[in-house]
Computed example of a mutant assay.
Amino acid sequence: MKETPSFSAHLKANAFAVEELLSALLGPAVGADEIARPANLLAAMRHGVLNGGKRLRPFLVSECTALLEGDADAALRVGAALECVHCYSLVHDDLPAMDDDDMRRGQPTVHIAFDEATAILAGDSLLTFAFDIIAAPETPLPDRQKTALILALARASGHGGMAGGQALDLAAEKRAPGEAGIVTLQAMKTGALIRFACEAGAVIADASDEDRRRLRAFGEKIGLAFQLADDLLDLTADAEAMGKATGKDAARGKGTLVALHGQAWAERELEELVAQAENLLQPYGARSAILVETARFIANRRS
């Protein structure tokens, strides 16, 4: 299903706002308690972050916050922090010791544009900066909510979440996991940050525990859909459309659910995941229309 023009415009408008904020946050001005911002390191960080993209994770933060009538400015800053974590993971994933990719979003990866050491430091700095953005006084939230967001993002990002998922992904090159192992790997490497993006909206809005559980579950469903769609694209899309190399999972012998069950199964599973995601949003009625369309967009994306 093709997204409506209004949805597409909404997604682009949010991406533009996130890009503007990230550009300002990653400017040359030295912040309070900083000593200096080395120009080459800052340039590498900007290269890894300010390179387009749909900014889907910040969009989910903003839309889940809006669903529960939370603070839009806080959502934008938390979304920018989340995008720093996501981009750090891409910078490190592209390194020769990891996935060894030369292109990302249609341009040279950070270690190609700069060098490996600078890419490592750029990733380290982006990860650290994410928590700076949330904790900073410019983020208009009480300390209690900031603490909850920092804890949730740390656990989604670290050894029990995304970084742990990358470790499992590297291990999968030597020994392909079974279906349960693949689901765990993908829930950690890809799903954890998408789950956080949705759950963060409830935290920012200081919503009920039930709202937080419901949006967390929604994030888990669309996180699974995102990775399944990604695996389909790795099989069917060309590198120009994706802005990065495709077919690498199959070449490395990595197990995916698509490889296990086939394309037709994956397409049916995506439909089921979207239906489950939509069902979780039913209590919110028409207010959840954009999130429903986001779930469909994730399942049917072409890049």
Rank of each mutant, 00 (worst) to 15 (best):
M1Q: 10
K2Q: 08
T4V: 03
A15L: 12
A15W: 03
S23T: 15
A24N: 13
G27S: 15
G31M: 14
G31L: 15
E34G: 04
A36S: 09
A36E: 14
N40I: 04
L41G: 04
L41K: 04
L41C: 01
H47Y: 04
L50R: 05
N51R: 14
G53Y: 07
R55D: 09
R55C: 06
R55V: 12
R57T: 01
R57V: 02
P58Q: 01
E63H: 02
C64N: 01
A66I: 00
L68F: 03
L68D: 06
G70D: 03
G70W: 03
D71H: 07
D71I: 06
A72E: 10
A72D: 11
R77D: 08
A81P: 09
L82E: 04
C84S: 08
Y88T: 02
S89E: 06
S89I: 03
P96E: 03
M98P: 05
R104M: 12
G106M: 08
Q107P: 09
I112E: 10
A113E: 11
A113W: 06
A119D: 07
L121H: 01
L127T: 01
D132C: 00
A136Q: 08
A136N: 06
P137W: 00
E138W: 00
T139F: 04
P140C: 00
G158D: 09
A163V: 15
G164T: 04
A167C: 08
L168E: 12
R175D: 14
E179P: 07
A180K: 14
A180D: 15
V183N: 06
V183I: 15
T184F: 07
L185T: 05
L185V: 09
E199P: 01
A202N: 05
R213F: 04
R214M: 06
L215G: 05
A217E: 13
A217P: 09
G219E: 05
G219C: 10
E220W: 09
E220K: 06
K221W: 03
Q227E: 12
A229G: 05
A229D: 02
D231T: 04
L235V: 15
E240F: 02
A241M: 07
A241R: 12
G243T: 04
A245T: 12
A245H: 09
T246V: 15
T246Q: 09
T246H: 02
K248L: 14
D249W: 01
G255V: 09
V258P: 09
A259L: 15
H261M: 06
G262H: 06
Q263I: 14
W265Q: 11
E267D: 10
E267L: 14
R268A: 15
R268W: 00
E269F: 10
L273D: 08
Q276F: 09
L281K: 06
L281T: 07
P283C: 10
L291K: 02
V292Q: 11
A295E: 05
F297W: 13
F297H: 10
I298F: 11
I298W: 05
N300R: 14
R301E: 00
S303Q: 13
S303V: 00
S303T: 11
